[in-house]
Amino acid sequence: MRHFWSSVCAIVWKDLKAEFRTKEMLSAMLIFAFLVIVIFSFAFDPGAQSIKQILPGIIWVGFFFSGILGLNRSFLSEQINDCISGLMLAPVDRAAIYFGKVFANLIQTTLVEAVALPVFIVLFDFSYAGSWLWLIVVILASTFGFVAVGTFLAALASNTRSSEVLLPIILFPVIVPVVIGAVELTKALFAGASISSVMIWLQVILVYDIVFTVVPFLLFDYLLEA
């Protein structure tokens, strides 16, 4: 069991080390998230009062779309030099590969979100008065659900002919509950409502997080059969 988690850490370390050397993926994700804001401000009048209503939606669209870029990469990069076989030969349960990738993706996606969120708020001239703690909890819980199932489906997609195109098509229908929950929660927090009035959504997301950590954990071996 100790070896399992030390392998998970080794994979996270390896992924982050490789990413921070070039920062290719992080910068692409960040620029993409910013582009989403800019495109949305052209699509909707950024000065209108109604913008406060749809800002949470815009933010999450930006997060999910840029997140997909990173997820797509996470297993495709393992195919260069057939590194995935190297991982599969390692003397550890293959679920360690799944968790290593989940945590590496979670850290990268969260970093992008942490930089993008203030920019979103500034560009739409929004002043947030709610609880920052709850906002962070909401963002982390939602991002985890998205990344947990996204990493799993990225592993699936990377093994097919149309990998990059396939991932968004198979991922978005599955994350509908997270999308709804994340937007509803953020909307409530932005409107200054207390978290208890929308607790049900946090529960939905936590249930989702648990289900879509356990099920991929059980099924991951089947994806990685050589």
């Binding site: 390896k14 080390k17 490789a18 050397r21 030099n81 057939d82 590194c83 076989s85 190297g86 030969l89």
Partner: peptide, 17 residues
Amino acid sequence: RKQIGVISHHSYLYGNL
């Protein structure tokens, strides 16, 4: 698998490391 080492024509190495 600890008893086993594999060398293939793929290197299994990460270019950015």
